[in-house]
């Protein structure tokens, strides 16, 4: 899929663990792991809003478009 999830980069910048972020967002770590590893097929606006709010970033910092070669 040409949509790249850069959640791990943002998490490293903000120095926050997967468990802590999942806890603050109110979702399970396994679901957040699916998103982080790029296995997710879709993301809800509410989830994106929550991530941006906690990590103090923009949606573009989390998601990136790279065309398939």
């Amino acid at each position: 899929m040409p949509i790249i999830v850069n959640l791990d980069v943002m998490m490293a910048r903000r120095k926050i663990s997967l468990g802590d972020l999942a806890d603050k967002m109110g979702i399970t770590p396994s679901n957040l792991s699916i998103l982080k590893t790029g296995k997710a097929k879709a993301i809800r606006f509410s989830t994106l809003e929550s991530i941006c709010q906690i990590l103090e970033c923009q949606p573009a910092d989390i998601l990136e478009y790279k065309p398939d070669e």
Binding site: I27, N31, L32, I34, L35, K39, A40, K41, A42, I43, R44, T47
Partner: peptide
């Protein structure tokens, strides 16, 4: 359903 399950 699979898409729904993989929607975070």
């Amino acid at each position: 359903r699979e898409d729904q399950e993989l929607t975070i």
